[in-house]
């Protein structure tokens, strides 16, 4: 937080504090581009960890992708994983630290392209951790190449004439795919582009961490997000574009929720 921000927070604490940086989020400048959904998602993830008071019991896994440096910001024990292998790393951590809360934080290239096998098999084993899946339909870190989630017709650095379904296939809805597996306990798709969406995503994250205590299987919270730099749009335009082109193929809402019986048994 900047000096100015600190002053504001101190002043606020004297009055009715309505908002401050979550304690579990380190007070450092993030590398994310202006308007990027990662920043908001990091913030609400750590708000949830504070709210549930589980900072000491949480171990996170950062991917390769834009969130590769997540461990610079999230003040919990962290692993940085090889590209696509976050859920295998999380499987190893959870196997030997079964009482801890374990989460992976992965992008679409990491989770739905190079790491598909690990993702599917973690879900199929019913691994008891949380996947936070940031779906912005592009490879942001490497400079805006086509992802498996890129919409048809979308121009990227590696689909300069637009994604062609015939050669690149259709965008993959991996969360829906995971929801088909018995090992997946909870699958939901949310966003962070509006105050209302942020509130819903927070609720989903709280649920997912609470479900982890039940030891019932994999939880996945997909966050449909933007990539202003990769999409070459302003933050505002990117959110509008996301609503029109991403949320139509990735509609927001719960995909798989546990039944009352699931929760009680």
């Amino acid at each position: 937080m900047s000096e100015k921000g600190t002053v504001v927070a101190e002043k606020a604490s004297e009055m009715d504090l309505v908002y401050c940086r979550p304690e579990s989020l380190l007070d450092v400048r993030m590398h994310y581009c202006p308007g990027c959904g990662h920043t908001t998602t990091h913030k609400i993830l750590m708000e949830v960890i504070d709210q549930l008071n589980i900072q000491e019991e949480t171990i996170g896994v950062a991917p390769v992708g834009c969130a590769v440096l997540a461990y610079e910001y999230l003040n919990v024990d962290m692993h940085q994983a090889a590209h696509g292998r976050a859920t295998a790393v999380a499987t190893g951590i959870k196997a030997v630290q079964p009482d801890k809360y374990v989460f992976t934080y992965q992008g679409d290239g990491d989770l739905a392209a190079i790491g598909t096998a690990e993702t599917i098999h973690s879900a199929n084993r019913g691994e008891n951790f949380l996947i936070i899946f940031i779906n912005n339909g592009i490879y942001g870190m490497t400079g805006g190449q086509m992802a498996p989630t890129t919409p048809i017709g979308e121009k990227t650095a590696t689909s300069p004439y637009g994604r062609d379904k015939k050669t690149a296939g259709a965008p993959i809805d991996i969360t829906n795919l995971l929801a088909q597996l018995p090992g997946t306990f909870y699958a939901t798709r949310q966003a962070v582009h509006s105050a209302n969406a942020v509130r819903k995503t927070k609720k989903a994250l709280i649920k997912a961490f609470e479900y982890q205590k039940l030891d019932k299987g994999l939880c996945i919270v997909e966050v449909v997000s933007n990539c202003p730099s990769g999409w070459k749009l302003t933050p505002y335009e990117s959110n509008e574009w996301m609503k029109e082109h991403m949320m139509t193929i990735y509609p927001l809402g719960d995909i798989k929720t546990p039944s009352k019986e699931d929760l009680l048994s």
Binding site: A81, A82, T91, G92, I93, A95, Q97, A117, E118, H121
Partner: peptide
Amino acid sequence: GVVLQAESEVAAINMIYGAAGAGS
């Protein structure tokens, strides 16, 4: 202890990375 048949050697070595990092 824990024994787990991974989906591949790639997954297995990354599970090792996770569990070794977690102190086991």
